[in-house]
Amino acid sequence: MTKHEAELVAMLRELDDPEWLERPRDYDRGKVGALFNGLVARLKDDFATQCVSERDTQDSSEYGRVTVPADATACGTRIVVCVSKFGSLALVCAENPGAFLGTGEAQAEGELDAADLDNVCRTLADLGYVIVPEELLERDYAGPSQLPWHVQRPTWWHRFFGIF
């Protein structure tokens, strides 16, 4: 595990409060929504296209998703950004979460352009989001929270982006 990965895991552990599964104790829906609106607007401008968004996901620790359409990307594969209700966590993936084991695999298969990925990551960083790689989120969950019974193999993704 790299130093950066270790720092991200430490941050996930710090955010993990067993009493607050769906959202953190200090959750401010208005603040999270305003930040998400800014993300949608920036991606729309950056890619010069309308980006579809879903927000305020019910019974989930994910706040919402914004999708850059395939026809606006260099490789013709849509880019999906998932935003958690916890700590401004964000996940960037090609096509959908789980379609590739991370952005590196999507790039290696020619499905994600480095410049498009850099553009999305820069936008997220500018807005204060913390990007957590899908590879890390797919690791086995090792925290104190009791995740829902229907989760067969709990991962960090289930904890911070999953449905409850």
Score class of each variant (00 low, 15 high):
25 R>G: 00
101 L>R: 10
78 R>C: 13
31 K>N: 08
126 D>Q: 13
112 L>Q: 03
125 A>E: 14
10 A>P: 05
76 G>Y: 09
74 A>M: 07
123 T>F: 09
6 A>L: 11
87 G>I: 07
35 L>P: 02
92 V>Y: 00
25 R>S: 10
111 E>W: 09
94 A>N: 01
38 G>M: 06
135 E>C: 14
146 Q>P: 11
118 D>L: 07
84 S>K: 00
109 E>N: 13
54 E>C: 01
54 E>G: 14
12 L>C: 11
133 P>K: 04
52 V>L: 15
53 S>W: 15
22 E>K: 06
59 D>C: 06
103 T>I: 06
94 A>Q: 02
10 A>I: 05
119 N>P: 04
100 F>C: 03
137 L>D: 03
39 L>F: 07
132 V>P: 08
87 G>A: 07
4 H>K: 08
110 G>A: 10
19 E>V: 01
111 E>P: 02
74 A>D: 13
38 G>F: 10
7 E>C: 11
73 T>V: 04
156 W>F: 07
109 E>W: 10
134 E>I: 01
80 V>A: 06
146 Q>M: 08
141 Y>H: 04
7 E>A: 14
10 A>L: 05
100 F>I: 08
105 E>A: 04
27 Y>M: 05
59 D>A: 15
86 F>S: 00
112 L>K: 03
102 G>S: 09
43 L>I: 14
82 C>I: 00
116 D>I: 08
160 F>L: 02
33 G>W: 05
60 S>D: 08
48 A>T: 14
82 C>D: 13
117 L>K: 07
81 V>I: 14
21 L>G: 00
132 V>M: 04
120 V>L: 00
22 E>N: 13
5 E>D: 15
136 L>R: 05
56 D>P: 01
119 N>T: 15
157 W>A: 11
95 E>D: 15
38 G>R: 03
141 Y>V: 06
132 V>I: 14
10 A>Q: 11
93 C>Y: 01
134 E>R: 00
108 A>F: 11
116 D>H: 06
129 Y>N: 02
127 L>K: 02
35 L>A: 15
77 T>H: 12
106 A>L: 07
15 L>M: 13
57 T>C: 08
92 V>K: 02
119 N>R: 15
12 L>N: 05
134 E>G: 10
